[in-house]
């Protein structure tokens, strides 16, 4: 990396914040996350306002199965821990173990997605479709949007792993790893509200 003279064999401490570009990326990413909070908030407000309007479809308390949701929660929580470990390995400049933690993060994210697809499939077979009621529409929009974020995170982190193989860990690639971890934690934070507001409160009634 000729553009960064001080990178010669050894990365600076906290390579994601070593350059102005890296710091600006982190700043910009937090603005994006603030906007994401608002975006999920709109979907949550629609769901909270409409969650009892089930028409002929099944009610939330009949539909949801807690064991599946609990398994999904555990998977996402663990994958969040894996991405923390990836960033810690990056700070210690251990590229190999960082890649392994990232691979684990992606695999857990994928199994979360599989679980969600199976879950939605079951709901559809029980007569809970996108167009069944205001409850079902707002449910699929909110939870599906979160699933879309998980899918994006899986694709993004997979591409980052490929880029690390090609370019190695530098002050250019380090901010990307750091931000993908922040993004992944954010997805986990949103899921905390989804399993609380949608599933558990739906089950309570």
């Amino acid at each position: 990396m000729s553009a960064h003279g001080h990178v010669e064999g050894q990365l600076p401490h906290e390579p994601e914040k070593a350059t102005l570009e890296g710091r600006n990326k982190i700043l910009g990413f937090w603005i994006f996350l603030g906007a994401e909070v608002v975006l999920f908030g709109t979907l949550f407000s629609a769901f909270i306002a409409l969650r009892h309007q089930v028409l002929d479809g099944p009610h939330a308390s009949e539909l949801f199965e807690l064991p599946t949701v609990f398994a999904a929660t555990m998977i996402l929580l663990t994958s969040s821990l894996m991405s923390v470990f990836a960033v810690q390995a990056m700070h210690k400049n251990q590229v190999k173990s960082m890649i392994w933690w990232l691979v684990l993060t992606v695999l857990l994210g994928l199994s979360f997605l599989v679980l969600e697809i199976v879950e939605f499939n079951t709901y559809v077979s029980e007569g809970h479709r996108m167009n069944t009621s205001a409850f079902s529409s707002s449910f699929y929009t909110l939870v599906g949007f979160h699933g879309g974020h998980v899918l994006f995170g899986v694709l993004w982190i997979s591409l980052l792993i490929a880029q690390i193989f090609k370019k190695g860990l530098t002050v250019v690639t380090a901010p990307k790893i750091y931000l993908s971890a922040i993004y992944w934690h954010f997805i986990d934070v949103v899921w905390v509200f989804i399993f609380t507001v949608v599933y558990l409160m739906g089950k309570v009634g």
Binding site: A35, F40, G41
Partner: peptide, 9 residues
């Protein structure tokens, strides 16, 4: 950023 987002929510 996050507090502003939560406020709007």
């Amino acid at each position: 950023c996050i507090v502003a987002g939560v406020f709007v929510v």
